[in-house]
Design a binder for these strands. Structure first.
Lengths: 158, 158
DNA sequence: GGGCGGTCGTTAGGGACCAGACTATATGGT
DNA sequence: ACCATATAGTCTGGTCCCTAACGACCGCCC
C-alpha cells in the first residue's frame, strides 16, 4: 500500500468534476483519521474499554462533578440515544452510576465510581503514550503546520 | 467550537506522558476525518446509499469485470464478513448480483448490474463535487503539503 | 390553574464494522 | 491417492452509531 494515497495524472480528465489534489487530500484525511482511531482502539483493547466509553469517563473526570447524559452527548457530538447505550455498558462494568437529579425529575446524573475514576486515569495515560509513539516522525514544526492546515479545513467543514 | 482544537499550556505538566503537540494533532486528525466522512454521508444521503456501498460500486466499476468479495475486502481494507453484509444490501437494491465462479467453486463473483453501474457514476460525481467545495480554502501548495504530512504519519501508523 | 410546546432519557429498529467459528473447496507434500 | 493446510464466503454475537417515536416532566402563557 502506498502512502500517501496518490491519484493518477489523467484522473481529472476522466472525471470532469474532480480536482485530483482535493481527492487526494480527502482520501488521505479519511484514511489517516481511521488509522488514528484504530491505534486508539488497539491501545484500549487490554483495558477492555471502548473508545466511546473512555471518552465518556474522560468527560466525567474533567467535569469534576456528576453530569446529565445530555451534557455528555453534546461534548461527544453524538446523539442522546447513543449515550444511553454507552452508559449502559459502563454501568454494567461498574465504572459509572446513574442517579436521579435532585430537582429536575426529567434528568439523570451520571456519577463516576471509584473504579471509573481510576479507569479514566489509566485510559488517558494509555492514549497519550500511544500518541507520542506514532507522532514520532513529525517534528514540532511539522505538527504545528499540520494542526494549522487541519484547522483551516475544519472551519469550512463544520 | 474552536478550530483547530487546542490544548492548554499546562497540559503536559498535568499528564506526564503527554506531548501537547501530539495530542493536538491526534484530536484534530480524528475530528477532521470524521467531518470529512460526515460530508460524504450527507452528500450521499439523497442517493440512498452508504459510503461503504458507494465505495464497493466504485471498486467494481474500476475493475471493469466481476470481482470476488475477497478482492473487495482487500481494496476496502475491511473484513470479509463486513463485505458480505454490504453486498447483501447492494443486492437487495438491485445494484449488484452474486454469481458462482466458473472454475473455483469456493468463490463468488460480484457483478455490477446496469443500475449499479449508473449508480457508481452518480456516486463518483457527487463525491467529487463535494470535495472541490470544502477543499476550497486550501491552495494547491497547501494541499500538497497536507498530503505529504499525512503520508509521513501513515507510514508509521499502518 | 390548566394546557401545551419543549426537553429529558429510553426504546425499537437498522446499518456498518469487528473477531471468531464454521463449511466447502482447493492444493501441495508425501 | 491421501491428508494437512490454506483459502473463500458466511454466520453469530458484539460494539458503536443513527433516526424516529415514545412517556415523563418542566415552564410559560393565557
Amino acid at each position: 500500500m502506498e502512502m500517501p494515497i496518490r491519484v493518477s495524472r489523467d484522473f481529472a480528465a476522466k472525471y470532469a468534476d474532480a480536482s485530483s489534489s482535493a481527492t487526494e487530500c480527502a482520501m488521505n484525511l479519511a484514511r489517516t483519521g481511521d488509522l488514528v482511531l484504530g491505534r486508539v482502539v488497539s491501545a484500549l483493547q487490554p483495558l477492555e474499554i471502548s473508545p466511546a466509553g473512555g471518552l465518556v469517563l474522560g468527560i466525567l473526570k474533567d467535569a469534576g462533578e456528576p453530569c446529565p447524559p445530555n451534557y455528555i452527548s453534546e461534548r461527544l457530538i453524538v446523539s442522546r440515544a447513543t449515550v444511553t447505550g454507552v452508559l449502559d455498558t459502563l454501568v454494567k462494568r461498574g465504572l459509572v452510576r446513574r442517579e436521579p437529579h435532585p430537582t429536575d425529575r426529567r434528568m439523570v446524573l451520571v456519577h463516576l465510581t471509584k473504579a471509573g475514576s481510576r479507569m479514566a486515569d489509566t485510559v488517558r495515560r494509555t492514549v497519550h503514550r500511544g500518541e507520542a509513539d506514532w507522532m514520532g516522525p513529525l517534528s514540532e514544526h511539522e505538527r504545528a503546520q499540520l494542526t494549522e492546515l487541519l484547522g483551516k479545513l475544519q472551519r469550512n467543514l463544520a
